[in-house]
Design a protein around this nucleic acid. Structure first.
Lengths: 127, 127
DNA sequence: CCATTACGAAACCTTTTCGTTTCATATTCG
DNA sequence: CGAATATGAAACGAAAAGGTTTCGTAATGG
């Protein structure tokens, strides 16, 4: 219920290529909006909107310095992504792959509902 | 140049929550469309479109069995995401953080163009 | 003080995205 | 064969995304 709860999804925030480039630009160095937008072919206002989205996802931090607002990347929220990824890593770099395969070929009743009836009549039109 | 070149971006593919749920559902088990769509509150056709997007990103594989089309997750394309993430991991779990901070406080000329003039007149309206 | 600079808010437009319903086609089975 | 099933393609609609230009306001500095 606090103020810093991410309102924008990290997955969505990084979906846009421009925003990924923004992160890259701001990962090591804080920069004011005008300077940032100089690195992009779109308007300053458009960049500003992307920055807001990133900020709401917690991926950049803003700080007012005089009349400028400086932005800098904040990598922490990416941990959520890392965690999400970690789950699927199991399935590509080893181990459970064999097990999953085994279950599939066994008839998967009890693992996922509704599947069995259809799975059973497997007929393979073509070899 | 082959047929399996990903036409859809992985970042974009996983941006949608429904598609992430699809991946989760299909990670261990292959399933036909009708069964899959039974797990979602949207129409079968809508699910089918999401599956197509995932397929174009290489995240699911489809296989025709009789009159049904079965889908299953293919985790490999997530490696791109992992790689992208790895770059930023440096910045949250250690090392370079200190260095980056150092550079910032030093005046960052030569690191990012255009910054210097503005950075220098730092005045900090408020403490 | 007043012109300039930095920036976000607002209004607006175009394209995508996500969903729907309807239709066509292939496969299965009595 | 013909009804039923599984699915994608097409046409369509509403809302969100990404962009632009214009305007208001706050800070700077001559």
């Amino acid at each position: 219920m606090a103020s810093s709860a991410p309102k924008y999804d990290v997955f969505q925030a990084i979906a846009d290529p421009t925003r990924r480039r923004l992160l890259q630009l701001l990962v090591e160095q804080e920069m004011p909006v005008t300077v940032i937008s100089g690195h992009f072919p779109i308007s300053r206002t458009a960049v500003s909107k992307h920055l807001r989205i990133l900020a709401e996802a917690g991926l950049v931090q803003e700080r007012k310095v005089g009349r400028e607002t400086r932005y800098r990347m904040q990598p922490e929220p990416l941990q959520e992504l890392k965690q999400w990824l970690a789950y699927y890593e199991q399935f590509w770099d080893n181990k459970l792959a064999a097990l999953a395969h085994y279950m599939e070929n066994q008839d998967a009743e009890g693992i996922v509902d509704r599947v069995p009836k259809i799975v059973k009549q497997e007929r393979e039109t073509k070899g």
